[in-house]
Design a binder for these strands. Structure first.
Lengths: 244, 244
DNA sequence: ACCTGAACACCGTTCAAGT
DNA sequence: ACCTGAACACCGTTCAAGT
């Protein structure tokens, strides 16, 4: 987790890139991407808007740095949890991948602005870091080299997309943020809307509508991970099984 | 494909929601998300900024409508191509899913702003439409009901994430947009950067770096689709194979 | 009913001026 | 070297006024 700083900054400590990024993360967590403003940031840091530009080139770099910080924290925590003997003796690659995936899932749930930011930043350092960790476990699974990149990519994109969707759903009920109660309420609402869709246009969505309310988001997320893991291992066993 | 309108609008035809959305898509395609401005839009439509608000509630709705239009066009085209006897006699569900996936992939390649927009919009109509089409094919595969949603979701998120990444890569070389030559050049540059990463921090990325330049993006994308399809079918054959 | 365009309250960013 | 804060060039959105 990113370091929590006090609401009102003590002005004695000088401005620094680190403090700016920390304050930016706080603003983003509380008010979303539109909440990050150089003026709001300056007020929070008890300085002027221009001062920030001495430590940071602009808003883009600030957003990247904030995203990078969150992801780095997440991977450090997930990596430690997976490889420390304190957890489970020696984790299988599958277990390590699940732990990694859940780490990203929870991080994006805590910081909903991170998802869109990751998707936007092409192959910059945060995505690279996640890919690196996933790729090592894919290698540990014994997947042939030629299929490793595709395997890690499939996991990566699923993790990013599902986490993003989940975070967007959570933000969908704008009243209270962390309440688990109103999230299930939100899902019930969505389910009701789906059930009323045009049967000719949305037959599949309708049949699936009543499964929605009971879902545990994290469990459902892991189901998808397992599904892709199954695809990775069986595809490696019988290479190029399906022609295109 | 969305209807191309002339650069300078003939001012005889009255303003309409449809014309506004068309002009918005043109602006987005040419200049990206930041290029869509009510002032630029007004100039293009030979009117004032305020006029647009009579047909559209605001920028958010305009962006949603533009995204919806692109996705609707794409699905209409992909659906027709997959189900028409003119193409191949009767397509298997796998082939239909690949066609659908490629349709979205190409659409996001043509309209890079669509990807982030789709990811942002939770379970609104464009995503729902894609899910519906994917879900029908998943049903056609004979997947049990309980696993259908997870299967369609995995496909959906992979498609969205991979298409997005590809579009971001294409936009990464800002000089010429459609040139296939400089995209491979871009990948060569990325590969070179990856090869020089710290061996202790990025062992996996380094081993994978030299595979990057030769890749056909669309083929690589389909490899991932096939991998997930393999997971879907084998998971259905042996339910809950991997515990969590 | 539909359009105009000035005006309002914001932005990110710059930069002369201070310490 | 680091900070200040006014100023610039933009935004999305509103709204009285026109036709």
């Amino acid at each position: 987790m990113a370091t929590r700083t006090r609401r009102t900054e003590r002005r004695e400590e000088p401005l620094s890139r680190e403090r700016i990024i920390g304050a930016a993360i706080e603003l983003l967590d509380r008010a979303g991407e539109s909440g990050l403003t150089f003026r709001a940031l300056a007020e929070r840091l008890a300085t002027g808007p221009g001062a920030i530009y001495w430590h940071v080139t602009g808003k883009d770099e600030l957003l990247s740095a904030a995203t990078d910080a969150v992801v780095a924290d997440t991977l450090a925590a997930a990596g430690a949890a997976a490889s420390t003997p304190a957890d489970t003796a020696d984790a299988t690659p599958q277990e390590a991948i699940r732990a990694l995936a859940l780490g990203v899932f929870d991080a994006i749930d805590d910081h909903p602005w991170v998802g869109p930011q990751l998707a936007r930043t092409s192959w910059k350092s945060p995505m690279l870091r996640v890919m690196e960790h996933l790729g090592r476990q894919v290698q540990a699974l014994g997947i042939p080299i030629a299929a490793q990149f595709a395997s890690a990519s499939a996991l990566m994109y699923y993790i990013l997309g599902a986490s993003n969707q989940n975070a967007a759903n959570t933000a969908g009920a704008p009243a209270l943020q962390p309440g688990a109660a109103n999230r299930t309420e939100f899902l019930a609402t969505v389910s009701a809307v789906w059930a009323k869709l045009d049967p000719d246009e949305y037959p599949f969505i309708r049949t699936v509508a009543d499964q929605l309310p009971g879902h545990d988001d994290r469990a459902e997320f892991l189901t998808g991970i397992d599904l892709i893991l199954a695809g990775i291992t069986t595809s490696a066993a019988t290479p190029s099984s399906t022609p295109h």
